[in-house]
Design a protein around this nucleic acid. Structure first.
Lengths: 134, 134
DNA sequence: CATATGCCTTCCCTTTACGTAAACTTACTC
DNA sequence: GAGTAAGTTTACGTAAAGGGAAGGCATATG
């Protein structure tokens, strides 16, 4: 595991690679999601493979609809009991379950919305029909 | 239809009745969702049954996930061609179809999101399982 | 009369997840 | 040595949907 030289990447390249902006990466560091990054000479941030993976993970969670604040909470509970894998994982499951529930709710509401709209649509359509045949 | 006296209700009561705040009602008026309300002496807002229905409708749409801005767009196209029923109706159908499409999109995305989360959840769950049996 | 509601307007505050300058270093290249 | 590109920090701006306080009428009641 001890590579003679870890492949380090700078912020601009990393951002482009993940199709986000440098601002986003700095922001994640700012709020503590990414941890302070190692600096090159000239203070330029550099990222190794672990950092990249962490960022990808964050983006994945975000894509799943988890807010940055929730991630912070998650990260905190990782850090506070990170010795015990058994106690942290249920917490993750809990959060995921909560999210599945939320998504189910949204889907149900949208489905109901859809039927309302469709209903409305057909009533108007009928109205138009009777209008033209009058 | 000409009631001798329409039952008028004031903002505080209306808010309480719909379980929202007076600020919310004023806000909807502010952005043009509710139209200027008739005032009593003392400039107090008053609402008749139509107003109440409109507000209920807005809350319904909101609950269904339609943003206030989208409602404004809808309201605008109602208002701009409201002279000719034959020409307005197809436009409404168009908007409704567009919304049905949007809703379908959202539902599809959420469904895919759901399966991703569920997948993730089960992988973690398995991990926990194998952990405890180790 | 005093006080308590209820309403009014105006205006700044909040949260989330960044966007967008401004002003400044550092590094590479012609 | 001038220009360009990429990096830095600080800090104000944005959208959505209101929250909440200040300061001021008007009505109702003991």
């Amino acid at each position: 595991m001890t590579d003679s030289q870890e492949p380090l990447i700078q912020i601009g390249k990393l951002a482009k690679q993940l199709a986000i902006t440098t601002r986003t990466i700095r922001y994640y560091e700012e709020i503590g999601l990414m941890g302070p990054s190692k600096r090159l000479s000239g203070c330029a941030r550099s990222y190794n493979q672990d950092d990249v993976l962490r960022l990808k993970f964050i983006l994945k969670l975000k894509e799943l609809g988890i807010s940055l604040k929730e991630m912070l909470d998650l990260a905190e509970s990782f850090d506070t009991h990170n010795q015990d894998f058994d106690t942290i994982t249920p917490r993750v499951l809990e959060i995921l379950d909560l999210h599945i529930g939320k998504v189910d709710d949204k889907i149900a509401k949208l489905a109901s919305l859809r039927s309302v709209i469709v209903n409305y649509r057909s009533r108007i359509s009928e109205l138009l029909q009777s209008q033209s045949t009058a």
